[in-house]
Design a protein around this nucleic acid. Structure first.
Length: 85
DNA sequence: TAGTTGACCGGAA
DNA sequence: ATTCCGGCCAACT
């Protein structure tokens, strides 16, 4: 468990309902401004419900992918929480 | 140990 | 505006 990893989890875990962060923002918050790719890698490896990985989206305002085999479900969850588009 | 891949980003065509 | 290309980090083979 690297500090980068635990930091990322901590940040994602702290995302409030109705709020969303981009992978880059999370990477920056974790202290690795250019490790936004690694963030996604960790998310896909992590299946813990304590970590709302569905609150993390791309900088292009695109929802991105999601585990459990359903990027659409992720978009649906976000929409239901109040995130538009 | 080295090479390839991916839930990405930003700039260029 | 959309599509292509290179670059970066961690994990996997």
């Amino acid at each position: 468990m690297t500090e980068f990893q635990q930091k990322v989890y901590e940040v994602v875990r702290g995302i409030k309902k109705g709020s969303v962060m981009t992978y880059k923002e999370v990477a920056i918050a974790a202290g690795h401004p250019n490790a936004f790719r690694a963030v996604g890698s960790l998310m896909k490896q992590n299946y813990d419900r304590e970590i709302p990985c569905h609150r993390v989206i791309r900088s292009d305002d695109k929802v991105g992918e999601y585990n459990r085999g359903g990027s659409e479900r992720k978009a649906e969850m976000l929409r239901e929480e109040g995130f538009r588009r």
